[in-house]
């Protein structure tokens, strides 16, 4: 690991200021991804600004019925929170399906959203990778790409976003609150991460020095009926091949609202708006679900080894929403 300076921020403004004047600096949360990337020489910060004591560590109900989750809340505390478990089970489930308890005890909500791809080439500095070193090429497109993306890719990058939490938050229409050199702003979770295009080095829209302070979940009564299904190579402690976060609001057998987001298939949490639009306002059955899922996946561009993700994602959408419908009281 390369040498670096360590500073503990005294408050959020101090954290932003410390980073803003150091171009090669990074915020440190739980460190479960960043420290690993520093060991691998993928991340080379000259300064780490520890923000665990300046990002909120509370989960609170808001006057409008929504819930605000502090960015410094650990993944474990988020998943164990009674309010989250009751009101947004898909969020708790997504967190519990990622990593291990040892990692979730360290990892923060803010850090979870900003974790980097686990594409093997990104993590291996002996290979070409446009995300790690722009302009060097993508080793994955001609290489081992079974785990990588089928939607939203570019000729420069086919990496997937590894977060489970982000998929559930995308389905819930969550908002990310930040503070940065230019002040505070709110970013819809679905707009936090970006598609690679010709600049895969930028995972998200945050500017240097912009710090996530909280995630806000809107009041969403039907989210009490929500579910996260994760499909992976082993039963636990592995990244998703495909995952689905879903919630449904059924009234007299008609879909009043439905939320579907996919993980493991794209460079960002993939909100399946096309499928949702086809399902809203009608009945829900296997055939309609299948057509909606196929419409969502119509633009999929698989690589040599990951075409299996198209039927896998289709079937996962169908089964997950049907499970929710069949579990209806």
């Amino acid at each position: 690991m390369r040498p670096f300076r360590y500073e503990r921020a005294t408050d959020a403004a101090n954290a932003v200021a410390l980073l803003a004047r150091a171009p090669q600096a990074a915020f440190l949360g739980g460190g479960t991804n960043l420290v690993d990337l520093m060991k691998l020489d993928v991340a080379r910060p000259e300064l780490l600004v520890d923000v665990r004591r300046v990002t909120p560590r509370t989960i609170e109900q808001l006057p409008d019925g929504g819930v605000r989750i502090g960015a410094g809340v650990t993944n474990s505390d988020l998943a164990a929170d009674p309010l989250i478990r009751r009101r947004y089970p898909v969020v708790a489930q997504a967190v519990l399906n990622g990593a291990s308890t040892q990692l979730r005890n360290l990892a923060t909500v803010g850090g979870n959203l900003l974790q980097r791809t686990r594409c093997l080439y990104f993590q291996d500095i002996t290979t070409a990778c446009n995300k790690r070193e722009p302009g060097t090429g993508c080793s994955a497109i001609e290489g081992h790409n079974r785990d990588l993306a089928i939607l939203g890719t570019s000729p420069d990058c086919i990496a997937t976003n590894p977060s489970d939490l982000a998929v559930a938050l995308a389905a819930m229409d969550a908002t990310v609150q930040t503070i940065g050199p230019d002040g505070s702003r709110a970013i819809p979770l679905t707009e936090l991460h970006r598609l690679p295009g010709s600049e895969p080095q930028h995972d998200n829209v945050l500017t240097h020095g912009e710090l996530i302070m909280a995630v806000v979940l809107p009041p969403l009564p039907f989210a009490t009926r929500s579910y996260y299904r994760k499909i992976r190579d082993r039963a636990s402690y592995a990244f998703a091949l495909v995952s689905v976060a879903a919630a449904i609001d059924l009234v007299d057998g008609q879909v009043r609202d439905v939320r579907i987001a996919l993980g493991g298939v794209a460079p960002k949490p993939w909100r399946a708006t096309r499928a949702e639009d086809l399902l809203r306002g009608g009945p829900v059955d296997e055939e309609r679900l299948r057509r909606a899922a196929e419409a969502e996946l119509a633009d999929a561009r698989p690589q040599a080894d990951n075409a299996f993700k198209i039927p896998l994602a289709r079937n996962a959408i169908v089964r997950t929403v049907l499970d929710l419908v069949e579990a209806a009281p």
Partner: peptide, 13 residues
């Protein structure tokens, strides 16, 4: 009372 992924085996949560 911490849950695990297995605690949520049923789709309705």
């Amino acid at each position: 009372g911490w849950p695990s992924a297995v605690t949520y085996r049923h789709p309705d949560g």
